[in-house]
Design a protein around this nucleic acid. Structure first.
Length: 640
DNA sequence: CTAGGGTTAG
Protein backbone atom coordinates (compact mmCIF):
# COMPACT_ATOMS: atom_id res chain seq x y z
CA UNK A 1 0.00 0.00 0.00
CA UNK A 2 1.28 3.45 -0.81
CA UNK A 3 0.97 5.91 1.98
CA UNK A 4 1.52 9.29 0.40
CA UNK A 5 0.11 12.45 1.85
CA UNK A 6 -1.84 14.83 -0.31
CA UNK A 7 0.60 17.69 0.19
CA UNK A 8 3.56 15.55 -0.76
CA UNK A 9 1.80 14.61 -3.99
CA UNK A 10 1.05 18.20 -4.84
CA UNK A 11 4.60 19.27 -4.11
CA UNK A 12 5.99 16.53 -6.27
CA UNK A 13 3.71 17.26 -9.19
CA UNK A 14 4.41 20.97 -8.98
CA UNK A 15 8.11 20.32 -9.11
CA UNK A 16 7.64 17.91 -11.96
CA UNK A 17 5.69 20.42 -13.98
CA UNK A 18 8.20 23.12 -13.09
CA UNK A 19 11.07 20.99 -14.33
CA UNK A 20 9.33 20.08 -17.56
CA UNK A 21 8.56 23.73 -18.15
CA UNK A 22 12.15 24.65 -17.52
CA UNK A 23 13.37 22.18 -20.05
CA UNK A 24 10.86 23.47 -22.56
CA UNK A 25 12.00 27.04 -22.06
CA UNK A 26 15.59 25.94 -22.47
CA UNK A 27 15.04 24.01 -25.67
CA UNK A 28 13.06 26.76 -27.36
CA UNK A 29 15.81 29.31 -27.28
CA UNK A 30 14.07 32.41 -28.59
CA UNK A 31 11.69 34.31 -26.37
CA UNK A 32 8.27 32.77 -26.50
CA UNK A 33 6.53 35.05 -24.06
CA UNK A 34 3.60 32.76 -23.40
CA UNK A 35 5.72 29.85 -22.20
CA UNK A 36 7.86 32.03 -19.96
CA UNK A 37 4.83 33.67 -18.39
CA UNK A 38 3.25 30.30 -17.68
CA UNK A 39 6.54 29.22 -16.17
CA UNK A 40 6.55 32.29 -14.00
CA UNK A 41 3.08 31.48 -12.79
CA UNK A 42 4.13 27.95 -11.89
CA UNK A 43 7.09 29.30 -10.03
CA UNK A 44 5.06 31.82 -8.10
CA UNK A 45 2.57 29.10 -7.25
CA UNK A 46 5.34 27.01 -5.79
CA UNK A 47 6.97 29.85 -3.97
CA UNK A 48 3.78 31.23 -2.52
CA UNK A 49 2.25 27.92 -1.59
CA UNK A 50 1.05 27.82 2.00
CA UNK A 51 3.45 25.08 3.08
CA UNK A 52 6.43 27.14 1.89
CA UNK A 53 5.74 30.06 4.14
CA UNK A 54 7.10 29.23 7.54
CA UNK A 55 5.41 30.59 10.63
CA UNK A 56 8.81 31.16 12.13
CA UNK A 57 11.26 32.28 9.44
CA UNK A 58 14.42 30.85 10.94
CA UNK A 59 13.05 27.46 11.76
CA UNK A 60 11.31 26.90 8.49
CA UNK A 61 10.14 23.38 8.12
CA UNK A 62 12.50 20.68 6.92
CA UNK A 63 10.43 19.96 3.82
CA UNK A 64 10.17 23.57 2.75
CA UNK A 65 13.89 24.07 3.10
CA UNK A 66 14.58 20.94 1.08
CA UNK A 67 12.20 22.01 -1.60
CA UNK A 68 13.77 25.44 -1.82
CA UNK A 69 17.17 23.82 -2.19
CA UNK A 70 15.99 21.58 -4.99
CA UNK A 71 14.42 24.61 -6.65
CA UNK A 72 17.76 26.40 -6.45
CA UNK A 73 19.48 23.36 -7.92
CA UNK A 74 17.12 22.98 -10.87
CA UNK A 75 16.84 26.65 -11.62
CA UNK A 76 17.80 27.26 -15.22
CA UNK A 77 16.99 30.86 -15.97
CA UNK A 78 18.02 34.17 -14.54
CA UNK A 79 14.45 35.32 -13.97
CA UNK A 80 13.83 32.24 -11.82
CA UNK A 81 16.82 33.13 -9.73
CA UNK A 82 15.35 36.60 -9.22
CA UNK A 83 12.07 35.08 -8.05
CA UNK A 84 13.78 32.69 -5.69
CA UNK A 85 15.87 35.58 -4.41
CA UNK A 86 12.73 37.59 -3.69
CA UNK A 87 11.23 34.61 -1.96
CA UNK A 88 14.31 34.12 0.21
CA UNK A 89 14.17 37.76 1.30
CA UNK A 90 10.42 37.57 1.94
CA UNK A 91 10.62 34.46 4.08
CA UNK A 92 13.86 35.56 5.69
CA UNK A 93 15.42 32.22 4.73
CA UNK A 94 18.62 34.20 4.35
CA UNK A 95 19.29 33.44 7.96
CA UNK A 96 19.29 29.75 7.13
CA UNK A 97 22.99 29.18 6.32
CA UNK A 98 22.20 26.18 4.14
CA UNK A 99 19.91 28.20 1.92
CA UNK A 100 22.08 31.29 1.61
CA UNK A 101 25.21 29.33 0.76
CA UNK A 102 23.40 27.17 -1.77
CA UNK A 103 21.91 30.19 -3.40
CA UNK A 104 25.13 32.19 -3.45
CA UNK A 105 26.98 29.25 -4.90
CA UNK A 106 24.30 28.73 -7.55
CA UNK A 107 24.30 32.39 -8.53
CA UNK A 108 28.06 32.57 -8.88
CA UNK A 109 28.49 29.26 -10.69
CA UNK A 110 25.53 29.17 -13.05
CA UNK A 111 26.26 30.06 -16.64
CA UNK A 112 23.95 33.05 -16.45
CA UNK A 113 25.15 34.10 -13.01
CA UNK A 114 26.92 37.40 -12.70
CA UNK A 115 29.29 38.66 -10.04
CA UNK A 116 27.28 41.82 -9.60
CA UNK A 117 24.29 39.68 -8.68
CA UNK A 118 26.33 37.50 -6.35
CA UNK A 119 27.80 40.60 -4.74
CA UNK A 120 24.34 42.05 -4.14
CA UNK A 121 23.11 38.85 -2.53
CA UNK A 122 26.31 38.49 -0.52
CA UNK A 123 25.90 41.99 0.92
CA UNK A 124 22.49 40.99 2.24
CA UNK A 125 23.96 38.18 4.33
CA UNK A 126 24.47 39.50 7.85
CA UNK A 127 27.30 37.34 9.09
CA UNK A 128 28.77 35.49 6.15
CA UNK A 129 30.32 32.14 6.94
CA UNK A 130 33.80 31.14 5.78
CA UNK A 131 32.18 29.09 3.03
CA UNK A 132 30.22 32.11 1.87
CA UNK A 133 33.29 34.33 1.87
CA UNK A 134 35.15 31.69 -0.13
CA UNK A 135 32.31 31.30 -2.61
CA UNK A 136 32.27 35.04 -3.14
CA UNK A 137 36.04 35.26 -3.62
CA UNK A 138 35.88 32.36 -6.04
CA UNK A 139 33.19 34.20 -8.00
CA UNK A 140 35.38 37.29 -8.19
CA UNK A 141 38.45 35.31 -9.20
CA UNK A 142 36.66 33.98 -12.26
CA UNK A 143 35.09 37.30 -13.17
CA UNK A 144 36.24 40.40 -14.98
CA UNK A 145 37.12 42.04 -11.67
CA UNK A 146 39.42 39.57 -9.92
CA UNK A 147 40.92 42.38 -7.82
CA UNK A 148 37.62 42.55 -5.89
CA UNK A 149 38.42 39.07 -4.56
CA UNK A 150 41.63 40.38 -3.05
CA UNK A 151 39.81 43.37 -1.50
CA UNK A 152 37.35 41.00 0.10
CA UNK A 153 40.20 38.83 1.36
CA UNK A 154 41.88 41.85 2.99
CA UNK A 155 38.54 42.78 4.51
CA UNK A 156 38.28 39.28 5.97
CA UNK A 157 41.69 39.61 7.58
CA UNK A 158 40.86 43.06 8.89
CA UNK A 159 37.71 41.69 10.52
CA UNK A 160 39.66 38.81 12.02
CA UNK A 161 37.67 36.27 10.01
CA UNK A 162 39.00 32.74 9.77
CA UNK A 163 40.46 31.79 6.39
CA UNK A 164 41.50 28.43 5.04
CA UNK A 165 43.43 26.87 2.22
CA UNK A 166 40.60 27.46 -0.24
CA UNK A 167 40.58 31.15 0.50
CA UNK A 168 44.24 31.35 -0.52
CA UNK A 169 43.59 29.19 -3.55
CA UNK A 170 40.94 31.55 -4.91
CA UNK A 171 43.10 34.57 -4.15
CA UNK A 172 45.98 33.05 -6.08
CA UNK A 173 43.63 32.52 -8.97
CA UNK A 174 42.74 36.21 -8.86
CA UNK A 175 46.42 37.15 -8.87
CA UNK A 176 47.05 34.78 -11.78
CA UNK A 177 44.27 36.37 -13.76
CA UNK A 178 45.64 39.84 -13.06
CA UNK A 179 49.24 38.67 -13.50
CA UNK A 180 49.91 40.62 -10.32
CA UNK A 181 53.26 39.52 -9.01
CA UNK A 182 53.15 41.67 -5.86
CA UNK A 183 49.67 40.42 -4.96
CA UNK A 184 50.71 36.80 -5.43
CA UNK A 185 53.86 37.23 -3.40
CA UNK A 186 51.78 38.56 -0.52
CA UNK A 187 49.42 35.61 -0.71
CA UNK A 188 52.38 33.23 -0.90
CA UNK A 189 53.71 34.79 2.29
CA UNK A 190 50.37 34.29 4.01
CA UNK A 191 50.21 30.68 2.82
CA UNK A 192 53.50 30.00 4.58
CA UNK A 193 52.43 31.84 7.76
CA UNK A 194 49.09 30.04 7.81
CA UNK A 195 50.82 26.70 7.50
CA UNK A 196 49.19 25.73 4.21
CA UNK A 197 52.47 25.03 2.44
CA UNK A 198 51.89 21.32 2.15
CA UNK A 199 48.56 21.58 0.37
CA UNK A 200 49.40 20.19 -3.07
CA UNK A 201 46.39 21.66 -4.83
CA UNK A 202 47.14 25.09 -3.48
CA UNK A 203 50.78 24.79 -4.48
CA UNK A 204 49.78 23.75 -7.98
CA UNK A 205 47.77 26.94 -8.30
CA UNK A 206 50.73 28.87 -6.97
CA UNK A 207 53.03 27.27 -9.54
CA UNK A 208 50.74 28.27 -12.35
CA UNK A 209 50.70 31.79 -10.95
CA UNK A 210 54.49 32.08 -11.02
CA UNK A 211 54.56 30.55 -14.47
CA UNK A 212 52.06 33.12 -15.81
CA UNK A 213 54.14 35.89 -14.22
CA UNK A 214 57.20 34.62 -16.13
CA UNK A 215 58.87 33.49 -12.91
CA UNK A 216 59.63 29.96 -13.99
CA UNK A 217 62.37 29.54 -11.40
CA UNK A 218 59.95 30.26 -8.58
CA UNK A 219 57.41 27.94 -10.20
CA UNK A 220 59.99 25.15 -10.23
CA UNK A 221 60.96 25.92 -6.64
CA UNK A 222 57.33 25.49 -5.57
CA UNK A 223 57.17 22.27 -7.57
CA UNK A 224 60.24 20.94 -5.76
CA UNK A 225 58.68 21.67 -2.39
CA UNK A 226 55.47 19.84 -3.12
CA UNK A 227 55.01 16.83 -0.85
CA UNK A 228 53.34 14.86 -3.64
CA UNK A 229 52.86 15.56 -7.29
CA UNK A 230 49.94 14.26 -9.28
CA UNK A 231 49.35 14.49 -13.01
CA UNK A 232 47.95 18.02 -12.77
CA UNK A 233 51.07 19.22 -10.97
CA UNK A 234 53.25 17.74 -13.71
CA UNK A 235 50.98 19.30 -16.32
CA UNK A 236 51.45 22.72 -14.79
CA UNK A 237 55.20 22.18 -14.81
CA UNK A 238 54.99 21.25 -18.48
CA UNK A 239 52.92 24.30 -19.32
CA UNK A 240 55.50 26.38 -17.47
CA UNK A 241 58.24 24.89 -19.67
CA UNK A 242 56.16 25.61 -22.75
CA UNK A 243 55.73 29.26 -21.81
CA UNK A 244 59.45 29.60 -21.22
CA UNK A 245 60.58 28.01 -24.47
CA UNK A 246 61.91 24.93 -22.66
CA UNK A 247 60.13 22.72 -25.19
CA UNK A 248 62.73 19.98 -25.15
CA UNK A 249 62.24 19.55 -21.42
CA UNK A 250 58.55 19.00 -22.12
CA UNK A 251 59.38 15.95 -24.20
CA UNK A 252 61.76 14.70 -21.51
CA UNK A 253 59.03 14.99 -18.86
CA UNK A 254 56.62 13.08 -21.08
CA UNK A 255 59.16 10.29 -21.46
CA UNK A 256 59.74 10.24 -17.71
CA UNK A 257 56.01 10.02 -17.06
CA UNK A 258 55.59 7.15 -19.52
CA UNK A 259 58.56 5.42 -17.95
CA UNK A 260 56.89 5.50 -14.54
CA UNK A 261 59.45 7.85 -13.06
CA UNK A 262 56.87 10.41 -11.97
CA UNK A 263 54.42 8.15 -10.21
CA UNK A 264 51.60 9.20 -12.49
CA UNK A 265 50.66 8.75 -16.11
CA UNK A 266 50.10 11.47 -18.73
CA UNK A 267 46.45 12.38 -19.18
CA UNK A 268 44.63 14.19 -21.96
CA UNK A 269 45.85 17.61 -20.81
CA UNK A 270 49.46 16.37 -20.74
CA UNK A 271 49.05 15.23 -24.33
CA UNK A 272 47.70 18.63 -25.36
CA UNK A 273 50.78 20.31 -23.94
CA UNK A 274 53.23 17.80 -25.36
CA UNK A 275 51.67 18.10 -28.80
CA UNK A 276 52.20 21.86 -28.65
CA UNK A 277 55.85 21.24 -27.83
CA UNK A 278 56.14 18.84 -30.78
CA UNK A 279 54.57 21.43 -33.03
CA UNK A 280 57.07 24.10 -32.13
CA UNK A 281 60.04 21.69 -32.27
CA UNK A 282 58.98 20.22 -35.60
CA UNK A 283 59.16 16.87 -33.79
CA UNK A 284 57.05 14.78 -36.13
CA UNK A 285 58.27 11.45 -34.83
CA UNK A 286 57.66 12.30 -31.20
CA UNK A 287 54.25 13.69 -32.10
CA UNK A 288 53.45 10.37 -33.69
CA UNK A 289 54.35 8.63 -30.43
CA UNK A 290 52.00 10.93 -28.55
CA UNK A 291 49.32 10.08 -31.11
CA UNK A 292 49.81 6.37 -30.41
CA UNK A 293 49.64 7.00 -26.68
CA UNK A 294 46.38 8.93 -27.16
CA UNK A 295 44.88 5.95 -28.95
CA UNK A 296 46.15 3.48 -26.37
CA UNK A 297 44.57 5.51 -23.59
CA UNK A 298 41.26 5.75 -25.42
CA UNK A 299 41.37 9.52 -25.83
CA UNK A 300 40.90 9.13 -29.57
CA UNK A 301 37.50 10.81 -29.57
CA UNK A 302 38.56 13.89 -27.62
CA UNK A 303 37.92 16.86 -29.92
CA UNK A 304 40.61 19.06 -28.39
CA UNK A 305 43.24 16.35 -28.79
CA UNK A 306 42.30 15.67 -32.39
CA UNK A 307 42.44 19.37 -33.18
CA UNK A 308 45.85 19.56 -31.59
CA UNK A 309 46.99 16.54 -33.62
CA UNK A 310 45.81 18.19 -36.84
CA UNK A 311 47.89 21.25 -36.01
CA UNK A 312 50.94 19.21 -35.03
CA UNK A 313 50.91 17.09 -38.19
CA UNK A 314 50.25 19.97 -40.55
CA UNK A 315 52.87 22.23 -39.00
CA UNK A 316 55.37 19.39 -39.18
CA UNK A 317 54.65 19.13 -42.90
CA UNK A 318 52.67 15.90 -42.76
CA UNK A 319 49.41 17.06 -44.23
CA UNK A 320 48.22 13.55 -45.14
CA UNK A 321 48.33 12.47 -41.50
CA UNK A 322 46.63 15.69 -40.44
CA UNK A 323 43.86 14.95 -42.88
CA UNK A 324 43.55 11.37 -41.66
CA UNK A 325 42.96 12.59 -38.12
CA UNK A 326 40.44 15.11 -39.40
CA UNK A 327 38.59 12.50 -41.44
CA UNK A 328 38.41 10.15 -38.47
CA UNK A 329 36.71 12.68 -36.22
CA UNK A 330 33.09 11.94 -35.49
CA UNK A 331 32.43 15.41 -34.14
CA UNK A 332 34.17 18.35 -35.81
CA UNK A 333 33.91 21.91 -34.57
CA UNK A 334 35.02 25.25 -35.94
CA UNK A 335 38.48 24.71 -34.47
CA UNK A 336 38.91 21.40 -36.34
CA UNK A 337 37.96 22.98 -39.66
CA UNK A 338 40.10 26.06 -39.07
CA UNK A 339 43.10 23.92 -38.13
CA UNK A 340 42.70 21.96 -41.36
CA UNK A 341 42.30 25.11 -43.44
CA UNK A 342 45.37 26.81 -41.94
CA UNK A 343 47.32 23.58 -42.30
CA UNK A 344 46.52 23.34 -46.00
CA UNK A 345 47.31 27.03 -46.40
CA UNK A 346 50.71 26.71 -44.75
CA UNK A 347 51.60 23.71 -46.86
CA UNK A 348 50.94 25.57 -50.08
CA UNK A 349 47.62 23.90 -50.84
CA UNK A 350 45.59 27.05 -51.32
CA UNK A 351 42.91 25.57 -53.56
CA UNK A 352 42.33 22.69 -51.17
CA UNK A 353 42.10 25.13 -48.27
CA UNK A 354 39.33 27.01 -50.06
CA UNK A 355 37.62 23.71 -50.85
CA UNK A 356 37.77 22.82 -47.16
CA UNK A 357 36.28 26.20 -46.26
CA UNK A 358 33.37 25.65 -48.65
CA UNK A 359 32.85 22.15 -47.27
CA UNK A 360 32.78 23.62 -43.80
CA UNK A 361 29.98 25.99 -44.80
CA UNK A 362 28.07 23.09 -46.34
CA UNK A 363 28.42 21.26 -43.02
CA UNK A 364 26.75 24.28 -41.37
CA UNK A 365 29.73 25.14 -39.21
CA UNK A 366 29.91 28.90 -38.71
CA UNK A 367 33.35 30.35 -39.48
CA UNK A 368 35.03 32.65 -36.97
CA UNK A 369 37.95 35.09 -37.05
CA UNK A 370 40.62 32.44 -37.12
CA UNK A 371 38.90 30.55 -39.92
CA UNK A 372 39.14 33.66 -42.07
CA UNK A 373 42.76 34.14 -41.11
CA UNK A 374 43.37 30.64 -42.48
CA UNK A 375 41.36 31.23 -45.65
CA UNK A 376 43.02 34.57 -46.39
CA UNK A 377 46.48 33.24 -45.72
CA UNK A 378 45.71 30.35 -48.08
CA UNK A 379 44.95 32.91 -50.77
CA UNK A 380 48.06 34.92 -50.03
CA UNK A 381 50.39 31.91 -49.95
CA UNK A 382 48.99 30.60 -53.21
CA UNK A 383 48.70 33.94 -54.98
CA UNK A 384 44.91 33.78 -55.30
CA UNK A 385 44.36 37.53 -55.41
CA UNK A 386 40.78 37.72 -56.64
CA UNK A 387 39.58 34.96 -54.34
CA UNK A 388 41.24 36.62 -51.37
CA UNK A 389 39.61 39.97 -52.05
CA UNK A 390 36.26 38.22 -52.40
CA UNK A 391 36.57 36.40 -49.06
CA UNK A 392 37.79 39.57 -47.40
CA UNK A 393 34.59 41.33 -48.44
CA UNK A 394 32.38 38.36 -47.63
CA UNK A 395 33.56 38.00 -44.08
CA UNK A 396 32.05 41.27 -42.97
CA UNK A 397 29.11 41.26 -45.36
CA UNK A 398 27.86 37.71 -44.88
CA UNK A 399 29.29 36.77 -41.50
CA UNK A 400 29.43 40.08 -39.63
CA UNK A 401 33.12 39.62 -38.84
CA UNK A 402 35.07 42.86 -38.84
CA UNK A 403 38.61 42.29 -40.13
CA UNK A 404 41.29 42.38 -37.44
CA UNK A 405 45.04 42.97 -37.75
CA UNK A 406 45.67 39.40 -38.86
CA UNK A 407 43.16 39.67 -41.68
CA UNK A 408 44.65 42.97 -42.82
CA UNK A 409 48.08 41.38 -42.56
CA UNK A 410 47.05 38.58 -44.91
CA UNK A 411 45.58 41.05 -47.37
CA UNK A 412 48.69 43.22 -47.36
CA UNK A 413 50.75 40.09 -47.94
CA UNK A 414 48.42 38.99 -50.73
CA UNK A 415 48.47 42.34 -52.55
CA UNK A 416 52.13 42.94 -51.84
CA UNK A 417 53.32 39.61 -53.18
CA UNK A 418 51.22 40.08 -56.29
CA UNK A 419 53.06 43.34 -56.88
CA UNK A 420 50.07 45.54 -56.07
CA UNK A 421 52.16 47.55 -53.64
CA UNK A 422 50.24 50.80 -53.86
CA UNK A 423 46.97 49.01 -53.28
CA UNK A 424 48.51 47.33 -50.23
CA UNK A 425 49.64 50.71 -48.93
CA UNK A 426 46.16 52.16 -49.47
CA UNK A 427 44.63 49.25 -47.57
CA UNK A 428 46.88 49.89 -44.59
CA UNK A 429 46.02 53.58 -44.59
CA UNK A 430 42.31 52.74 -44.72
CA UNK A 431 42.40 50.60 -41.58
CA UNK A 432 40.08 51.80 -38.84
CA UNK A 433 42.50 50.74 -36.13
CA UNK A 434 46.12 51.85 -36.04
CA UNK A 435 48.32 49.55 -38.13
CA UNK A 436 50.85 47.70 -36.02
CA UNK A 437 54.48 47.06 -36.83
CA UNK A 438 53.79 43.54 -38.16
CA UNK A 439 51.63 44.95 -40.94
CA UNK A 440 54.29 47.42 -42.02
CA UNK A 441 56.88 44.68 -41.88
CA UNK A 442 54.77 42.56 -44.23
CA UNK A 443 54.67 45.41 -46.72
CA UNK A 444 58.41 45.91 -46.31
CA UNK A 445 58.91 42.27 -47.27
CA UNK A 446 56.90 42.87 -50.43
CA UNK A 447 59.02 45.94 -51.22
CA UNK A 448 62.07 43.73 -50.98
CA UNK A 449 60.60 41.15 -53.38
CA UNK A 450 59.58 43.77 -55.93
CA UNK A 451 62.66 45.96 -55.43
CA UNK A 452 60.58 49.00 -54.58
CA UNK A 453 63.09 51.21 -52.79
CA UNK A 454 60.99 54.36 -52.39
CA UNK A 455 58.06 52.62 -50.72
CA UNK A 456 60.46 50.59 -48.60
CA UNK A 457 61.92 53.79 -47.22
CA UNK A 458 58.46 55.15 -46.50
CA UNK A 459 57.56 51.96 -44.63
CA UNK A 460 60.70 52.19 -42.51
CA UNK A 461 59.69 55.75 -41.70
CA UNK A 462 56.30 54.45 -40.45
CA UNK A 463 58.09 51.84 -38.35
CA UNK A 464 60.35 54.52 -36.89
CA UNK A 465 57.28 56.53 -36.01
CA UNK A 466 55.92 53.53 -34.13
CA UNK A 467 59.31 53.16 -32.42
CA UNK A 468 59.08 49.54 -33.44
CA UNK A 469 62.01 49.01 -35.80
CA UNK A 470 63.70 45.68 -35.37
CA UNK A 471 66.96 44.37 -36.65
CA UNK A 472 65.07 42.37 -39.28
CA UNK A 473 63.59 45.56 -40.72
CA UNK A 474 67.00 47.04 -41.40
CA UNK A 475 68.04 43.80 -43.03
CA UNK A 476 64.97 43.96 -45.28
CA UNK A 477 65.72 47.56 -46.22
CA UNK A 478 69.32 46.64 -46.79
CA UNK A 479 68.27 43.75 -49.00
CA UNK A 480 66.00 46.07 -50.94
CA UNK A 481 68.94 48.38 -51.64
CA UNK A 482 71.18 45.49 -52.54
CA UNK A 483 68.52 44.06 -54.87
CA UNK A 484 68.80 47.21 -56.98
CA UNK A 485 72.58 47.37 -56.60
CA UNK A 486 72.66 50.52 -54.46
CA UNK A 487 75.78 49.52 -52.53
CA UNK A 488 76.28 53.00 -51.16
CA UNK A 489 73.03 52.81 -49.22
CA UNK A 490 73.80 49.25 -48.20
CA UNK A 491 77.02 50.45 -46.60
CA UNK A 492 75.13 53.32 -44.97
CA UNK A 493 72.57 51.02 -43.35
CA UNK A 494 75.27 48.59 -42.26
CA UNK A 495 77.18 51.40 -40.62
CA UNK A 496 74.02 52.64 -38.92
CA UNK A 497 73.32 49.14 -37.58
CA UNK A 498 76.89 48.76 -36.37
CA UNK A 499 76.97 52.20 -34.71
CA UNK A 500 73.68 51.57 -32.93
CA UNK A 501 74.57 48.08 -31.84
CA UNK A 502 71.66 46.52 -33.73
CA UNK A 503 72.05 42.76 -33.62
CA UNK A 504 70.30 40.52 -36.11
CA UNK A 505 68.67 37.28 -35.04
CA UNK A 506 71.04 34.50 -36.02
CA UNK A 507 69.54 32.07 -38.48
CA UNK A 508 69.25 28.58 -37.08
CA UNK A 509 68.14 25.34 -38.69
CA UNK A 510 67.29 22.11 -36.91
CA UNK A 511 67.03 18.58 -38.21
CA UNK A 512 65.85 15.70 -36.04
CA UNK A 513 67.22 12.20 -36.60
CA UNK A 514 66.29 9.27 -34.37
CA UNK A 515 64.95 11.63 -31.74
CA UNK A 516 68.13 13.69 -31.58
CA UNK A 517 67.90 17.35 -32.55
CA UNK A 518 70.85 18.66 -34.55
CA UNK A 519 71.13 22.42 -34.63
CA UNK A 520 73.04 24.45 -37.22
CA UNK A 521 73.84 28.14 -37.42
CA UNK A 522 75.54 30.10 -40.20
CA UNK A 523 79.07 28.82 -40.77
CA UNK A 524 78.58 26.37 -37.96
CA UNK A 525 81.71 24.53 -36.86
CA UNK A 526 80.36 22.98 -33.69
CA UNK A 527 78.91 19.74 -35.04
CA UNK A 528 80.96 16.63 -34.23
CA UNK A 529 80.81 15.59 -37.90
CA UNK A 530 81.61 19.05 -39.25
CA UNK A 531 84.45 17.86 -41.51
CA UNK A 532 82.25 15.32 -43.24
CA UNK A 533 79.46 17.90 -43.52
CA UNK A 534 81.64 20.49 -45.24
CA UNK A 535 83.07 17.89 -47.58
CA UNK A 536 79.56 16.78 -48.46
CA UNK A 537 78.50 20.38 -49.00
CA UNK A 538 81.34 20.89 -51.48
CA UNK A 539 80.37 17.71 -53.29
CA UNK A 540 76.71 18.78 -53.42
CA UNK A 541 77.78 22.22 -54.65
CA UNK A 542 79.61 20.85 -57.64
CA UNK A 543 76.80 18.39 -58.46
CA UNK A 544 74.19 21.16 -58.37
CA UNK A 545 76.33 23.47 -60.47
CA UNK A 546 76.31 20.85 -63.23
CA UNK A 547 72.51 20.76 -63.01
CA UNK A 548 72.35 24.51 -63.51
CA UNK A 549 72.26 25.89 -59.98
CA UNK A 550 73.68 29.41 -59.79
CA UNK A 551 74.19 31.07 -56.39
CA UNK A 552 71.87 34.03 -56.00
CA UNK A 553 74.10 36.89 -54.98
CA UNK A 554 71.45 39.47 -54.15
CA UNK A 555 70.56 37.52 -51.00
CA UNK A 556 73.83 38.48 -49.46
CA UNK A 557 74.37 41.59 -47.44
CA UNK A 558 77.94 42.31 -48.48
CA UNK A 559 79.18 44.16 -51.47
CA UNK A 560 81.78 41.55 -52.27
CA UNK A 561 82.96 40.16 -55.53
CA UNK A 562 80.76 37.41 -56.98
CA UNK A 563 83.14 34.62 -56.00
CA UNK A 564 83.29 35.73 -52.41
CA UNK A 565 79.51 36.03 -52.27
CA UNK A 566 79.12 32.55 -53.61
CA UNK A 567 81.39 31.26 -50.90
CA UNK A 568 79.58 33.12 -48.12
CA UNK A 569 76.20 31.81 -49.24
CA UNK A 570 77.20 28.21 -49.25
CA UNK A 571 77.42 28.20 -45.46
CA UNK A 572 73.84 29.15 -44.63
CA UNK A 573 72.46 26.99 -41.84
CA UNK A 574 69.84 25.43 -44.14
CA UNK A 575 72.55 24.13 -46.44
CA UNK A 576 74.60 22.69 -43.61
CA UNK A 577 71.53 20.90 -42.30
CA UNK A 578 70.68 19.56 -45.75
CA UNK A 579 74.25 18.31 -46.23
CA UNK A 580 74.05 16.57 -42.87
CA UNK A 581 70.69 15.07 -43.83
CA UNK A 582 72.11 13.65 -47.08
CA UNK A 583 75.09 12.35 -45.15
CA UNK A 584 73.26 10.74 -42.25
CA UNK A 585 70.16 9.17 -43.85
CA UNK A 586 69.77 6.42 -46.42
CA UNK A 587 69.02 7.47 -50.01
CA UNK A 588 65.38 8.36 -50.62
CA UNK A 589 64.67 9.41 -47.03
CA UNK A 590 62.71 12.63 -46.71
CA UNK A 591 64.78 15.43 -45.18
CA UNK A 592 62.81 17.61 -42.74
CA UNK A 593 64.20 20.91 -41.53
CA UNK A 594 62.94 23.80 -39.45
CA UNK A 595 64.32 27.32 -39.66
CA UNK A 596 63.61 30.19 -37.31
CA UNK A 597 63.68 32.88 -40.03
CA UNK A 598 62.39 33.06 -43.56
CA UNK A 599 64.29 30.95 -46.04
CA UNK A 600 66.41 33.02 -48.40
CA UNK A 601 66.13 32.96 -52.19
CA UNK A 602 69.41 31.18 -52.62
CA UNK A 603 68.70 28.35 -50.18
CA UNK A 604 65.31 27.98 -51.83
CA UNK A 605 66.94 27.50 -55.25
CA UNK A 606 69.53 25.22 -53.72
CA UNK A 607 66.88 22.94 -52.22
CA UNK A 608 64.86 22.91 -55.43
CA UNK A 609 67.73 21.70 -57.57
CA UNK A 610 68.92 19.29 -54.89
CA UNK A 611 65.52 17.63 -54.63
CA UNK A 612 65.84 16.66 -58.27
CA UNK A 613 69.56 15.86 -58.49
CA UNK A 614 69.60 13.75 -55.32
CA UNK A 615 66.03 12.50 -55.76
CA UNK A 616 65.10 13.49 -52.23
CA UNK A 617 61.98 15.03 -50.83
CA UNK A 618 63.03 18.05 -48.75
CA UNK A 619 60.54 19.71 -46.40
CA UNK A 620 61.62 22.99 -44.86
CA UNK A 621 59.52 24.85 -42.33
CA UNK A 622 60.41 28.50 -42.05
CA UNK A 623 58.87 31.19 -39.86
CA UNK A 624 55.70 31.51 -41.88
CA UNK A 625 55.14 28.37 -43.92
CA UNK A 626 56.29 25.02 -45.21
CA UNK A 627 58.20 24.34 -48.41
CA UNK A 628 57.90 20.90 -49.98
CA UNK A 629 60.69 20.40 -52.49
CA UNK A 630 60.37 17.52 -54.91
CA UNK A 631 61.58 16.82 -58.43
CA UNK A 632 63.07 20.29 -58.79
CA UNK A 633 59.96 22.17 -57.68
CA UNK A 634 58.61 23.73 -54.53
CA UNK A 635 55.01 23.59 -53.33
CA UNK A 636 55.14 27.28 -52.54
CA UNK A 637 54.20 29.82 -55.11
CA UNK A 638 56.43 32.65 -53.98
CA UNK A 639 57.42 35.41 -56.34
CA UNK A 640 61.13 35.42 -55.73
C1' DC B 1 28.63 21.79 9.71
C1' DT B 2 27.37 24.00 4.84
C1' DA B 3 31.06 24.18 -0.70
C1' DG B 4 34.94 22.20 -2.43
C1' DG B 5 40.42 24.36 -5.13
C1' DG B 6 44.94 23.37 -9.57
C1' DT B 7 46.46 22.20 -15.76
C1' DT B 8 43.18 22.27 -21.33
C1' DA B 9 42.78 22.67 -28.93
C1' DG B 10 43.01 26.28 -34.22
Amino acid sequence: MKLVTASAVSQRSLLASLNSNLSVSLSSSSSSSSSSSSLASVLSTVLNAEHMRPANPVSCSQGASEQLISLIKSCAHESHLLQIHAHILRTRSLEDPTISLRFLSRVSLSPFGRVSYARRFFSQIKNPSLAEFNTMIRAYSGSDSPEEGLYLYREMRRLGERTNSLTSSFCIKSCTKMASLTGGLQIHGRIVRDGHQSDSLLLTALMDFYSICCKSEQACAVFDEMPERDTVAWNVLISCYLRNCRTRDVLAVFDAMIGGECGCQPDDVTCLHVLQACTSLNALEFGGRVHEYIQERGYGDAVKLCNSLITMYSRCGSMDKAFMVFKGMRVKNVVSWSALISGLAMNGKGREAIEAYLAMLRANVVPDDQTFTGVLSACSHSGLVEEGMLFFEEMSKDFQRMPNVHHYGCMVDLLGRAGLLDQAYELIMSMSSKPDSTIWRTLLGACRIHRHVALGERVVWHLTELKAQEAGDYVLLLNTYSSVGDWERVTEVRKFMKDNGIQTTPGCTTITLNGIVHEFTVDDVSHPRQNEIYTMLDEIGSQLKIAGYVPEISSELHNLSSEEKGYRLSNHSEKLAIAFGILATPPGTTIRLANNLRICVDCHNFAKVLSSVYDRMVIIRDRSRLHHFQGGHCSCNDYW
